[in-house]
Write a protein that binds this DNA or RNA. Structure first.
Length: 470
RNA sequence: GGCGCGGUAGCCAAGUGGUAAGGCAGAGGUCUGCAAAACCUUUAUUCGGCGGUUCGAUCCCGCCCCGCGCCUCCA
Protein backbone atom coordinates (compact mmCIF):
# COMPACT_ATOMS: atom_id res chain seq x y z
CA UNK A 1 0.00 0.00 0.00
CA UNK A 2 1.27 3.46 -0.85
CA UNK A 3 1.83 6.29 1.58
CA UNK A 4 -1.30 7.58 3.27
CA UNK A 5 -2.01 10.32 5.80
CA UNK A 6 -5.01 11.28 7.86
CA UNK A 7 -6.09 14.72 6.69
CA UNK A 8 -7.81 16.89 9.29
CA UNK A 9 -9.47 18.82 6.49
CA UNK A 10 -11.35 15.84 5.07
CA UNK A 11 -11.28 13.73 8.24
CA UNK A 12 -10.14 10.81 6.15
CA UNK A 13 -7.00 8.84 5.50
CA UNK A 14 -5.90 9.84 2.02
CA UNK A 15 -3.29 8.73 -0.46
CA UNK A 16 -0.41 11.16 -0.37
CA UNK A 17 0.55 12.75 -3.65
CA UNK A 18 2.51 16.00 -3.78
CA UNK A 19 1.40 18.69 -6.18
CA UNK A 20 4.62 18.54 -8.13
CA UNK A 21 6.46 15.30 -8.93
CA UNK A 22 8.40 14.16 -5.91
CA UNK A 23 8.84 17.55 -4.28
CA UNK A 24 7.08 18.02 -0.95
CA UNK A 25 6.40 21.54 0.22
CA UNK A 26 5.88 21.36 3.95
CA UNK A 27 5.26 23.95 6.62
CA UNK A 28 5.23 23.25 10.32
CA UNK A 29 4.49 25.53 13.22
CA UNK A 30 7.58 25.91 15.35
CA UNK A 31 8.13 27.23 18.84
CA UNK A 32 7.34 30.53 20.45
CA UNK A 33 10.65 31.35 22.05
CA UNK A 34 9.67 32.88 25.37
CA UNK A 35 10.91 30.03 27.52
CA UNK A 36 12.32 26.52 27.29
CA UNK A 37 9.89 24.33 25.38
CA UNK A 38 8.68 21.24 27.22
CA UNK A 39 8.63 17.62 26.11
CA UNK A 40 4.97 17.91 25.15
CA UNK A 41 6.07 20.40 22.53
CA UNK A 42 8.82 18.02 21.55
CA UNK A 43 6.29 15.28 21.02
CA UNK A 44 4.99 17.31 18.11
CA UNK A 45 8.44 18.18 16.83
CA UNK A 46 9.46 14.54 17.05
CA UNK A 47 6.39 13.60 15.02
CA UNK A 48 7.41 16.16 12.42
CA UNK A 49 10.89 14.66 12.37
CA UNK A 50 9.51 11.15 11.81
CA UNK A 51 7.35 12.59 9.05
CA UNK A 52 10.36 14.28 7.45
CA UNK A 53 12.45 11.17 7.62
CA UNK A 54 9.73 8.96 6.23
CA UNK A 55 9.07 11.26 3.30
CA UNK A 56 12.77 11.24 2.52
CA UNK A 57 12.93 7.47 2.88
CA UNK A 58 10.13 7.28 0.36
CA UNK A 59 12.22 9.24 -2.09
CA UNK A 60 10.67 12.67 -1.78
CA UNK A 61 12.66 15.82 -1.93
CA UNK A 62 11.67 18.07 0.93
CA UNK A 63 11.27 21.77 1.20
CA UNK A 64 10.29 22.18 4.81
CA UNK A 65 9.81 25.53 6.49
CA UNK A 66 9.42 25.97 10.21
CA UNK A 67 8.63 29.30 11.76
CA UNK A 68 9.96 30.66 15.02
CA UNK A 69 7.62 33.09 16.71
CA UNK A 70 9.95 35.66 18.19
CA UNK A 71 7.53 38.46 18.92
CA UNK A 72 4.33 38.04 20.90
CA UNK A 73 2.74 39.06 24.18
CA UNK A 74 4.63 36.58 26.35
CA UNK A 75 7.94 37.51 24.77
CA UNK A 76 7.33 41.21 25.23
CA UNK A 77 6.35 40.65 28.86
CA UNK A 78 9.35 38.41 29.50
CA UNK A 79 11.80 40.78 27.88
CA UNK A 80 10.39 43.70 29.85
CA UNK A 81 10.66 41.74 33.07
CA UNK A 82 14.34 41.09 32.40
CA UNK A 83 15.02 44.53 31.00
CA UNK A 84 16.20 43.10 27.69
CA UNK A 85 15.35 43.76 24.09
CA UNK A 86 13.10 41.12 22.60
CA UNK A 87 15.97 40.14 20.30
CA UNK A 88 18.30 39.47 23.23
CA UNK A 89 15.55 37.73 25.14
CA UNK A 90 14.46 35.41 22.33
CA UNK A 91 18.04 34.62 21.29
CA UNK A 92 18.51 32.66 24.51
CA UNK A 93 15.48 30.45 24.00
CA UNK A 94 15.92 30.11 20.28
CA UNK A 95 19.42 28.78 20.86
CA UNK A 96 18.15 26.47 23.60
CA UNK A 97 15.42 25.16 21.34
CA UNK A 98 17.80 24.18 18.57
CA UNK A 99 20.23 22.66 21.04
CA UNK A 100 17.44 20.55 22.49
CA UNK A 101 16.21 19.62 19.03
CA UNK A 102 19.69 18.47 18.10
CA UNK A 103 19.92 16.47 21.31
CA UNK A 104 16.72 14.70 20.30
CA UNK A 105 18.21 14.18 16.84
CA UNK A 106 15.54 16.21 15.11
CA UNK A 107 16.59 17.05 11.61
CA UNK A 108 16.73 20.72 10.75
CA UNK A 109 14.07 21.95 8.35
CA UNK A 110 15.37 23.34 5.06
CA UNK A 111 14.32 26.80 6.23
CA UNK A 112 13.85 28.22 9.70
CA UNK A 113 11.86 31.44 9.55
CA UNK A 114 11.86 33.89 12.47
CA UNK A 115 8.80 36.13 12.41
CA UNK A 116 10.69 39.35 12.99
CA UNK A 117 12.76 38.74 9.85
CA UNK A 118 9.63 38.60 7.72
CA UNK A 119 7.66 41.68 8.70
CA UNK A 120 7.72 42.91 5.11
CA UNK A 121 6.02 39.74 3.89
CA UNK A 122 3.37 40.10 6.57
CA UNK A 123 2.75 43.73 5.72
CA UNK A 124 2.37 42.74 2.11
CA UNK A 125 -0.12 40.02 3.01
CA UNK A 126 -2.18 42.37 5.13
CA UNK A 127 -2.27 44.95 2.35
CA UNK A 128 -3.53 42.31 -0.03
CA UNK A 129 -6.22 41.29 2.44
CA UNK A 130 -7.16 44.91 2.86
CA UNK A 131 -7.44 45.38 -0.90
CA UNK A 132 -9.60 42.29 -1.00
CA UNK A 133 -11.99 43.81 1.54
CA UNK A 134 -11.30 41.27 4.24
CA UNK A 135 -10.17 43.69 6.91
CA UNK A 136 -11.26 46.55 9.09
CA UNK A 137 -9.46 48.73 11.58
CA UNK A 138 -10.29 49.74 15.08
CA UNK A 139 -8.15 51.93 17.32
CA UNK A 140 -5.17 51.50 15.03
CA UNK A 141 -5.36 47.71 14.90
CA UNK A 142 -6.29 45.79 11.79
CA UNK A 143 -8.62 42.81 11.95
CA UNK A 144 -9.72 40.05 9.67
CA UNK A 145 -13.48 39.98 9.20
CA UNK A 146 -14.40 36.33 9.03
CA UNK A 147 -17.80 36.91 7.46
CA UNK A 148 -15.85 37.68 4.29
CA UNK A 149 -14.67 34.09 4.18
CA UNK A 150 -17.71 31.80 3.91
CA UNK A 151 -15.65 28.64 4.28
CA UNK A 152 -14.45 29.68 7.70
CA UNK A 153 -14.62 26.63 9.94
CA UNK A 154 -13.90 24.03 7.30
CA UNK A 155 -10.77 22.74 8.97
CA UNK A 156 -12.05 22.58 12.54
CA UNK A 157 -15.49 21.52 11.33
CA UNK A 158 -17.19 24.23 13.25
CA UNK A 159 -20.31 25.84 11.91
CA UNK A 160 -20.15 29.58 12.38
CA UNK A 161 -23.01 30.43 10.06
CA UNK A 162 -25.41 31.17 12.90
CA UNK A 163 -23.03 33.07 15.05
CA UNK A 164 -23.81 36.43 16.46
CA UNK A 165 -22.36 39.41 14.74
CA UNK A 166 -21.92 42.82 16.12
CA UNK A 167 -21.39 41.63 19.65
CA UNK A 168 -18.43 43.38 21.11
CA UNK A 169 -16.26 41.01 23.03
CA UNK A 170 -13.18 42.27 24.68
CA UNK A 171 -10.54 39.68 23.99
CA UNK A 172 -6.84 40.22 24.27
CA UNK A 173 -7.45 43.87 25.05
CA UNK A 174 -8.38 44.66 21.48
CA UNK A 175 -11.86 45.52 20.30
CA UNK A 176 -13.27 43.38 17.56
CA UNK A 177 -16.49 43.70 15.66
CA UNK A 178 -17.15 40.03 16.01
CA UNK A 179 -15.94 37.57 18.60
CA UNK A 180 -14.43 35.32 15.94
CA UNK A 181 -12.59 38.02 14.08
CA UNK A 182 -8.90 37.99 14.72
CA UNK A 183 -6.19 40.56 14.73
CA UNK A 184 -3.78 40.89 11.82
CA UNK A 185 -1.86 43.87 13.09
CA UNK A 186 -1.78 45.09 16.67
CA UNK A 187 -1.52 48.85 17.22
CA UNK A 188 1.56 50.13 18.98
CA UNK A 189 1.14 50.31 22.72
CA UNK A 190 3.39 52.10 25.20
CA UNK A 191 6.98 50.93 25.10
CA UNK A 192 6.28 47.78 23.15
CA UNK A 193 8.34 47.03 20.08
CA UNK A 194 6.74 48.18 16.85
CA UNK A 195 7.21 48.46 13.13
CA UNK A 196 5.97 51.34 10.98
CA UNK A 197 3.63 50.32 8.20
CA UNK A 198 1.16 51.97 5.82
CA UNK A 199 -1.64 50.90 8.16
CA UNK A 200 0.02 52.20 11.28
CA UNK A 201 2.77 51.44 13.76
CA UNK A 202 2.49 48.18 15.58
CA UNK A 203 3.33 44.51 15.47
CA UNK A 204 1.97 41.46 13.72
CA UNK A 205 -0.73 39.18 15.00
CA UNK A 206 0.27 35.58 15.33
CA UNK A 207 -1.72 34.02 12.52
CA UNK A 208 -0.50 36.26 9.73
CA UNK A 209 3.10 35.23 10.29
CA UNK A 210 2.50 31.68 9.20
CA UNK A 211 0.44 32.57 6.15
CA UNK A 212 2.96 35.16 5.00
CA UNK A 213 6.06 33.05 5.56
CA UNK A 214 4.60 29.82 4.25
CA UNK A 215 3.64 31.47 0.98
CA UNK A 216 6.90 33.40 0.77
CA UNK A 217 8.95 30.21 0.88
CA UNK A 218 6.64 27.62 -0.56
CA UNK A 219 4.21 29.35 -2.87
CA UNK A 220 0.45 29.63 -2.70
CA UNK A 221 -0.34 25.98 -2.09
CA UNK A 222 1.52 23.74 0.31
CA UNK A 223 1.50 19.98 0.22
CA UNK A 224 1.64 19.43 3.97
CA UNK A 225 0.94 21.68 6.90
CA UNK A 226 1.52 20.13 10.28
CA UNK A 227 1.31 21.10 13.92
CA UNK A 228 -0.15 20.23 17.27
CA UNK A 229 -3.85 19.47 17.48
CA UNK A 230 -4.52 22.54 19.58
CA UNK A 231 -3.57 24.68 16.60
CA UNK A 232 -6.46 23.44 14.47
CA UNK A 233 -8.62 26.16 15.89
CA UNK A 234 -8.16 29.00 15.70
CA UNK A 235 -4.60 29.21 14.36
CA UNK A 236 -4.78 27.00 11.30
CA UNK A 237 -8.36 27.96 10.56
CA UNK A 238 -7.22 31.55 10.50
CA UNK A 239 -4.26 30.77 8.30
CA UNK A 240 -6.63 29.24 5.80
CA UNK A 241 -8.91 32.27 5.92
CA UNK A 242 -6.01 34.67 5.35
CA UNK A 243 -4.17 32.71 2.71
CA UNK A 244 -7.15 31.65 0.68
CA UNK A 245 -8.65 35.11 0.80
CA UNK A 246 -5.44 36.40 -0.77
CA UNK A 247 -4.90 33.71 -3.40
CA UNK A 248 -8.30 32.18 -3.98
CA UNK A 249 -6.45 28.87 -3.95
CA UNK A 250 -6.28 26.00 -1.55
CA UNK A 251 -3.65 26.88 1.07
CA UNK A 252 -2.59 23.40 2.14
CA UNK A 253 -3.58 20.05 0.74
CA UNK A 254 -2.84 17.80 3.71
CA UNK A 255 -3.27 18.97 7.27
CA UNK A 256 -1.58 16.73 9.81
CA UNK A 257 -2.08 17.26 13.51
CA UNK A 258 -0.41 15.45 16.36
CA UNK A 259 -2.16 14.67 19.61
CA UNK A 260 -0.90 15.97 22.91
CA UNK A 261 1.41 14.43 25.37
CA UNK A 262 -0.41 13.98 28.64
CA UNK A 263 0.75 13.73 32.18
CA UNK A 264 -1.63 12.41 34.80
CA UNK A 265 -4.36 12.40 32.16
CA UNK A 266 -4.03 16.08 31.40
CA UNK A 267 -2.18 17.76 28.65
CA UNK A 268 1.26 18.96 29.56
CA UNK A 269 1.27 22.72 29.41
CA UNK A 270 3.05 25.72 30.75
CA UNK A 271 -0.11 27.27 32.10
CA UNK A 272 -1.01 24.14 34.05
CA UNK A 273 2.53 23.95 35.37
CA UNK A 274 2.65 20.18 34.85
CA UNK A 275 5.56 20.06 32.47
CA UNK A 276 9.06 18.73 32.10
CA UNK A 277 11.65 20.21 29.82
CA UNK A 278 14.15 18.05 28.01
CA UNK A 279 16.80 19.43 30.34
CA UNK A 280 14.80 18.30 33.37
CA UNK A 281 14.79 14.73 32.13
CA UNK A 282 18.42 14.70 31.06
CA UNK A 283 19.27 16.06 34.49
CA UNK A 284 17.59 13.01 35.99
CA UNK A 285 19.88 10.79 33.98
CA UNK A 286 17.62 9.73 31.14
CA UNK A 287 19.19 9.36 27.74
CA UNK A 288 18.01 11.54 24.86
CA UNK A 289 17.45 8.41 22.77
CA UNK A 290 15.06 7.01 25.37
CA UNK A 291 13.07 10.22 25.32
CA UNK A 292 13.06 10.26 21.54
CA UNK A 293 11.97 6.64 21.44
CA UNK A 294 9.16 7.24 23.90
CA UNK A 295 7.90 10.25 21.95
CA UNK A 296 8.07 8.42 18.64
CA UNK A 297 6.74 5.03 19.69
CA UNK A 298 3.14 6.05 20.18
CA UNK A 299 1.44 6.89 16.85
CA UNK A 300 1.15 10.63 16.50
CA UNK A 301 -2.63 10.79 16.48
CA UNK A 302 -2.89 9.08 19.86
CA UNK A 303 -2.56 10.84 23.15
CA UNK A 304 0.71 9.87 24.74
CA UNK A 305 0.63 9.46 28.48
CA UNK A 306 4.02 10.42 29.83
CA UNK A 307 5.25 8.44 32.83
CA UNK A 308 8.68 7.71 34.22
CA UNK A 309 7.77 4.06 34.06
CA UNK A 310 7.27 4.48 30.33
CA UNK A 311 10.56 6.32 30.00
CA UNK A 312 12.37 3.53 31.83
CA UNK A 313 10.68 0.98 29.59
CA UNK A 314 11.87 2.92 26.57
CA UNK A 315 15.43 2.84 27.91
CA UNK A 316 15.27 -0.93 28.32
CA UNK A 317 13.80 -1.38 24.90
CA UNK A 318 16.61 0.51 23.24
CA UNK A 319 19.11 -1.55 25.19
CA UNK A 320 17.55 -4.69 23.79
CA UNK A 321 18.02 -3.42 20.25
CA UNK A 322 21.61 -2.41 20.93
CA UNK A 323 22.30 -5.83 22.43
CA UNK A 324 20.95 -7.38 19.29
CA UNK A 325 23.15 -5.18 17.14
CA UNK A 326 26.16 -6.03 19.28
CA UNK A 327 25.41 -9.72 19.02
CA UNK A 328 25.17 -9.47 15.26
CA UNK A 329 28.55 -7.86 14.92
CA UNK A 330 30.42 -9.78 17.61
CA UNK A 331 29.29 -13.36 17.07
CA UNK A 332 31.46 -15.76 15.09
CA UNK A 333 29.41 -17.23 12.30
CA UNK A 334 29.66 -20.10 9.84
CA UNK A 335 30.38 -19.11 6.25
CA UNK A 336 27.68 -18.75 3.67
CA UNK A 337 24.22 -17.33 3.61
CA UNK A 338 20.92 -18.71 4.78
CA UNK A 339 18.41 -17.75 2.10
CA UNK A 340 15.44 -18.12 4.42
CA UNK A 341 16.95 -15.54 6.73
CA UNK A 342 17.71 -13.25 3.83
CA UNK A 343 14.07 -13.45 2.81
CA UNK A 344 12.88 -13.00 6.38
CA UNK A 345 14.98 -9.83 6.60
CA UNK A 346 13.46 -8.41 3.44
CA UNK A 347 10.05 -9.25 4.78
CA UNK A 348 10.77 -7.40 8.03
CA UNK A 349 11.65 -4.31 6.04
CA UNK A 350 8.46 -4.58 4.03
CA UNK A 351 6.38 -4.87 7.22
CA UNK A 352 8.19 -1.86 8.67
CA UNK A 353 7.54 0.15 5.51
CA UNK A 354 3.90 -0.86 5.31
CA UNK A 355 3.33 0.27 8.88
CA UNK A 356 4.87 3.70 8.35
CA UNK A 357 3.14 4.13 5.01
CA UNK A 358 -0.09 3.71 6.94
CA UNK A 359 -0.23 7.20 8.42
CA UNK A 360 3.05 6.68 10.27
CA UNK A 361 1.96 3.78 12.44
CA UNK A 362 5.12 3.70 14.49
CA UNK A 363 3.79 1.15 17.00
CA UNK A 364 3.18 -1.37 14.28
CA UNK A 365 6.52 -0.60 12.65
CA UNK A 366 8.27 -1.32 15.94
CA UNK A 367 6.38 -4.56 16.35
CA UNK A 368 7.72 -5.68 12.97
CA UNK A 369 11.26 -4.99 14.16
CA UNK A 370 10.88 -6.80 17.47
CA UNK A 371 9.36 -9.88 15.90
CA UNK A 372 12.32 -9.95 13.59
CA UNK A 373 14.81 -9.50 16.41
CA UNK A 374 13.32 -12.38 18.36
CA UNK A 375 13.35 -14.70 15.36
CA UNK A 376 16.92 -13.84 14.46
CA UNK A 377 18.06 -14.36 18.04
CA UNK A 378 16.56 -17.83 17.86
CA UNK A 379 18.23 -18.45 14.52
CA UNK A 380 21.54 -17.39 16.05
CA UNK A 381 20.99 -19.78 18.95
CA UNK A 382 20.22 -22.57 16.50
CA UNK A 383 23.29 -21.87 14.39
CA UNK A 384 21.15 -21.13 11.35
CA UNK A 385 22.40 -17.62 10.94
CA UNK A 386 25.43 -17.37 8.67
CA UNK A 387 28.19 -14.94 7.94
CA UNK A 388 26.59 -13.25 4.96
CA UNK A 389 23.29 -12.85 6.77
CA UNK A 390 24.99 -10.14 8.77
CA UNK A 391 24.36 -7.81 5.87
CA UNK A 392 20.70 -8.74 5.76
CA UNK A 393 20.21 -8.02 9.43
CA UNK A 394 22.32 -4.88 9.32
CA UNK A 395 20.09 -3.58 6.56
CA UNK A 396 17.00 -4.10 8.71
CA UNK A 397 18.55 -2.15 11.56
CA UNK A 398 19.72 0.54 9.18
CA UNK A 399 16.22 1.06 7.82
CA UNK A 400 14.81 1.09 11.33
CA UNK A 401 17.37 3.58 12.56
CA UNK A 402 17.03 5.86 9.57
CA UNK A 403 13.63 6.74 11.03
CA UNK A 404 13.88 6.11 14.76
CA UNK A 405 17.54 7.05 15.18
CA UNK A 406 18.09 5.62 18.65
CA UNK A 407 20.76 2.96 18.22
CA UNK A 408 23.82 5.13 18.50
CA UNK A 409 24.40 6.21 22.10
CA UNK A 410 24.68 9.93 22.69
CA UNK A 411 27.98 11.39 23.70
CA UNK A 412 28.54 10.43 27.28
CA UNK A 413 28.94 13.14 29.82
CA UNK A 414 30.16 13.59 33.36
CA UNK A 415 31.05 10.38 35.19
CA UNK A 416 31.04 8.28 32.06
CA UNK A 417 33.19 10.63 30.07
CA UNK A 418 36.22 9.95 32.20
CA UNK A 419 35.51 6.26 32.39
CA UNK A 420 37.94 3.63 31.14
CA UNK A 421 39.14 3.60 27.57
CA UNK A 422 38.44 0.62 25.34
CA UNK A 423 42.06 -0.48 25.59
CA UNK A 424 42.01 -0.36 29.37
CA UNK A 425 38.84 -2.40 29.43
CA UNK A 426 40.27 -4.99 27.06
CA UNK A 427 43.33 -5.26 29.25
CA UNK A 428 41.25 -5.97 32.34
CA UNK A 429 39.09 -8.44 30.46
CA UNK A 430 42.21 -10.32 29.42
CA UNK A 431 43.44 -10.24 32.98
CA UNK A 432 40.18 -11.75 34.17
CA UNK A 433 40.31 -14.43 31.51
CA UNK A 434 43.75 -15.44 32.65
CA UNK A 435 42.60 -15.57 36.26
CA UNK A 436 39.66 -17.74 35.23
CA UNK A 437 41.94 -20.07 33.33
CA UNK A 438 44.07 -20.40 36.44
CA UNK A 439 40.84 -21.05 38.37
CA UNK A 440 41.57 -18.01 40.50
CA UNK A 441 37.90 -17.05 40.67
CA UNK A 442 38.38 -14.58 43.50
CA UNK A 443 40.71 -12.56 41.31
CA UNK A 444 38.43 -12.95 38.29
CA UNK A 445 35.40 -11.74 40.24
CA UNK A 446 37.35 -8.83 41.65
CA UNK A 447 38.17 -7.64 38.15
CA UNK A 448 34.57 -8.15 37.10
CA UNK A 449 33.32 -6.07 40.02
CA UNK A 450 35.89 -3.41 39.39
CA UNK A 451 34.67 -3.07 35.82
CA UNK A 452 31.04 -3.08 36.91
CA UNK A 453 31.74 -0.16 39.23
CA UNK A 454 33.03 1.71 36.21
CA UNK A 455 29.81 0.97 34.36
CA UNK A 456 31.20 -1.86 32.24
CA UNK A 457 29.07 -4.97 32.03
CA UNK A 458 30.71 -8.23 31.01
CA UNK A 459 28.81 -10.90 29.14
CA UNK A 460 30.24 -14.38 29.20
CA UNK A 461 29.16 -16.05 25.98
CA UNK A 462 30.06 -19.29 24.29
CA UNK A 463 32.56 -17.44 22.17
CA UNK A 464 34.20 -15.59 24.98
CA UNK A 465 33.68 -12.33 26.78
CA UNK A 466 31.76 -9.44 25.34
CA UNK A 467 31.51 -6.16 27.18
CA UNK A 468 29.37 -3.07 26.95
CA UNK A 469 29.04 0.23 28.68
CA UNK A 470 25.93 0.48 30.81
C1' G B 1 -23.90 23.33 24.56
C1' G B 2 -20.93 22.67 19.57
C1' C B 3 -16.79 20.03 17.31
C1' G B 4 -13.14 16.13 17.95
C1' C B 5 -10.33 11.94 20.26
C1' G B 6 -10.12 7.74 23.33
C1' G B 7 -11.58 3.50 26.95
C1' U B 8 -7.74 -3.70 24.67
C1' A B 9 -3.48 -7.88 30.03
C1' G B 10 0.13 -4.78 36.12
C1' C B 11 1.86 -0.40 32.78
C1' C B 12 2.43 1.45 27.49
C1' A B 13 0.09 -0.06 23.05
C1' A B 14 -1.25 -2.43 17.59
C1' G B 15 -5.16 -4.55 15.26
C1' U B 16 -9.03 -7.24 12.13
C1' G B 17 -16.18 -9.10 10.82
C1' G B 18 -14.15 -15.42 11.90
C1' U B 19 -12.47 -16.05 17.73
C1' A B 20 -6.37 -10.82 20.37
C1' A B 21 0.81 -7.64 17.33
C1' G B 22 4.74 -5.66 19.99
C1' G B 23 7.49 -3.28 24.26
C1' C B 24 8.22 -2.93 29.72
C1' A B 25 7.33 -5.45 34.27
C1' G B 26 6.31 -10.62 36.39
C1' A B 27 7.09 -16.13 36.13
C1' G B 28 9.91 -20.37 34.15
C1' G B 29 14.19 -22.02 31.41
C1' U B 30 19.12 -22.03 28.55
C1' C B 31 24.05 -20.51 29.34
C1' U B 32 27.77 -20.06 33.57
C1' G B 33 33.04 -21.91 38.29
C1' C B 34 29.20 -18.90 40.76
C1' A B 35 26.92 -14.89 39.03
C1' A B 36 25.63 -11.20 35.87
C1' A B 37 24.43 -10.04 31.15
C1' A B 38 22.16 -11.96 27.06
C1' C B 39 18.70 -15.07 24.83
C1' C B 40 14.27 -18.28 24.70
C1' U B 41 9.41 -19.63 26.60
C1' U B 42 5.25 -17.86 29.07
C1' U B 43 1.40 -14.22 30.79
C1' A B 44 -6.05 -11.19 28.14
C1' U B 45 -11.59 -17.59 26.71
C1' U B 46 -11.06 -11.58 26.37
C1' C B 47 -11.06 -6.12 24.07
C1' G B 48 -15.83 0.14 29.33
C1' G B 49 -21.47 -1.40 29.89
C1' C B 50 -26.23 -2.82 27.63
C1' G B 51 -28.89 -3.89 23.34
C1' G B 52 -29.05 -4.65 17.81
C1' U B 53 -27.34 -6.40 12.75
C1' U B 54 -24.79 -11.11 11.43
C1' C B 55 -23.85 -18.05 10.85
C1' G B 56 -20.21 -15.25 13.68
C1' A B 57 -18.33 -8.52 16.48
C1' U B 58 -13.19 -6.27 20.21
C1' C B 59 -13.75 -4.60 15.24
C1' C B 60 -20.57 -2.40 12.08
C1' C B 61 -25.18 0.35 14.30
C1' G B 62 -27.86 2.52 18.65
C1' C B 63 -28.00 3.96 23.69
C1' C B 64 -25.37 4.59 28.25
C1' C B 65 -20.99 5.24 31.54
C1' C B 66 -15.99 7.13 32.08
C1' G B 67 -11.52 10.03 30.58
C1' C B 68 -9.35 13.84 27.50
C1' G B 69 -8.78 17.96 23.91
C1' C B 70 -10.49 22.43 21.14
C1' C B 71 -14.25 26.26 21.22
C1' U B 72 -9.41 32.28 24.75
C1' C B 73 -2.86 32.19 24.40
C1' C B 74 -1.24 27.05 23.66
C1' A B 75 2.65 21.65 20.34
Amino acid sequence: MPLRFYNTLTQEVELFRPLEDNLVRMYTCGPTVYNYVHIGNFRTFTFQDILRRWLKYRGYQLNHVMNVTDVDDKIIAGAAREGKSIADYTAVYTKAFFEDAATLRLQQPEHVAPATKHIAQMVDAIEKLSAHGSTYTNDGSTYFRITTFPEYGKLSHNDFSGMKTGARVDVDEYDKADARDFVLWKARKGDEPYWDTPFGAGRPGWHIECSAMAMAYLGETLDIHAGGIDLVFPHHENEIAQSESITGKSFARYWLHSEHLHIESQKMSKSLGNFYTLRDLLGQGYAPEAIRYLLASVPYRKKLNFTFEGLKAASKTIERLRDFELRLTSTKLPRGRNDAIAERSAQAIRAFEDALDDDLNTAEALAAIFEYVREINSALDAGEFREENRWDAAKVLEVFDSVFDVLKPSETTGAQADSLSDAEIEKLVTERNQAKKARDFARADAVRNQLLEQGIVLEDTKEGVRWKRK
